[in-house]
């Protein structure tokens, strides 16, 4: 998937579950509709948990990729 321009990048590497999710939730709640937040996590559970949360909450995955052990997910705030 192509990389996208993001509004803000949140580096949550080094935090354990649910730290990365909490960091994403904070940024999404504080952001404006249409903002793209890119989260970086090295917690393996994030690869399953974060897309699940994004889909459940009705936001959009703009980009998702793995670089070594680092998981990048860019989320567009939809509401």
């Amino acid at each position: 998937m192509r990389q996208v321009d993001f509004t803000k990048q949140v580096d949550a590497r080094g935090t354990y579950c649910p730290g990365p999710l909490m960091e994403l939730v904070k940024s999404i709640k504080r952001g404006q509709m249409g903002d793209v937040i890119e989260l970086i996590s090295d917690d393996k559970g994030s690869r399953v948990d974060i897309p699940e949360w994004v889909n459940k909450m009705g936001h959009e995955i703009a980009n998702e990729r793995l670089e070594g052990e680092d998981y990048y997910i860019a989320v567009r705030k939809m509401k």
Binding site: P18, L21, M22, V25, K56, M57
Partner: peptide
Amino acid sequence: SLVGSVAAMSG
């Protein structure tokens, strides 16, 4: 606390 917190953040 983890389950409760994530549930709350998930609506």
